[in-house]
Amino acid sequence: MIQSLAALTSVTDTNAVFGAADLGLTTPGIRQAAPAGPASNFGDLLTQIAGQMRDTVKTGEAAAISGIQGKTSTQAVVEAVMSAEQTLQTAVAIRDKVVAAYLEIVRMAI
């Protein structure tokens, strides 16, 4: 789980977890690339984040397969798998928050 913005600096690809530039966040010491285009609404933002998460997990899977075949170094495999694991944990945390918010809304008196 990401405790602070400083935790993003330990990730090799800062856009792999959240797309920090898309959220308007800056990380100290890391040069941000220009965003492809701002999200016009919250749904678009979530779609972009989900796509980035999917790509990170696919990269981790591909690195693991490549490592099994002996084409990739162990360090590269571990980095890709750890990034994919962190992305998956972030996705689960976001899902849990969305479900909790929905349940709270459902319980509200009208």
Rank of each mutant, 00 (worst) to 15 (best):
S66F: 04
G51V: 08
E85P: 02
I68V: 15
N15L: 01
L25C: 11
S83W: 00
T14N: 11
I105K: 15
A39P: 12
V92A: 14
S10P: 06
S4D: 06
D44I: 09
A84L: 02
M108L: 15
G60D: 03
T27Y: 11
I2V: 14
A93Q: 15
L23C: 12
M1E: 10
A62H: 04
M82W: 06
I30C: 03
S73Q: 06
Q75P: 00
E85Q: 08
I2K: 09
A76Q: 04
M53S: 05
I30R: 06
A21I: 05
G24D: 04
Q32V: 07
E61H: 06
T14Q: 13
T72N: 03
V81E: 01
T74S: 08
G43V: 06
V77P: 00
A101E: 09
M82Y: 06
L25Q: 12
I65A: 09
V11A: 07
A91C: 01
M53P: 01
T9I: 10
N15E: 10
A84G: 08
G43E: 09
T90D: 10
V11C: 07
T87E: 09
V106E: 07
N15T: 05
A100N: 11
P35V: 13
L46H: 00
S4Q: 05
S10W: 05
V17W: 00
L45S: 08
G24F: 01
Q69A: 12
T26F: 02
T26A: 08
A39D: 05
T9K: 12
K97P: 00
K97Y: 00
A7W: 10
I65N: 06
T90C: 09
A76T: 03
L8Q: 06
T59C: 05
V92I: 13
V106R: 13
A76H: 01
A64H: 05
M108F: 10
F18P: 12
A16I: 03
A39M: 03
I68D: 10
Q89F: 09
L46M: 01
Q75R: 04
R31W: 06
A91H: 01
I105Y: 14
I94N: 07
V77F: 03
T56Y: 03
R95P: 08
A64N: 04
V77Y: 04
Q86C: 13
T87K: 01
A20C: 04
G24K: 07
F18D: 11
P38K: 12
A91E: 01
D44L: 10
L45N: 11
M82C: 08
L103N: 12
G67K: 05
Q48Y: 09
T87V: 14
P35C: 13
L23I: 12
G29R: 14
T26L: 05
L25M: 12
K97D: 01
V81T: 01
F18S: 15
L45Q: 13
T14K: 14
A34Y: 05
I68R: 15
A62W: 00
K97R: 06
A91K: 02
T59R: 11
T47F: 15
F42P: 05
P38D: 07
L23H: 15
T26D: 05
I105M: 13
T74E: 06
R31V: 11
V11Q: 07
A21V: 08
V99D: 14
A93E: 15
V17E: 01
A39V: 03
E61W: 04
V98H: 10
V11D: 04
V99W: 14
L88Q: 09
V78F: 03
N41Y: 08
G60W: 02
A16K: 01
V17H: 00
N15Q: 08
T90K: 08
V106H: 10
K97V: 02
R54K: 05
T26E: 09
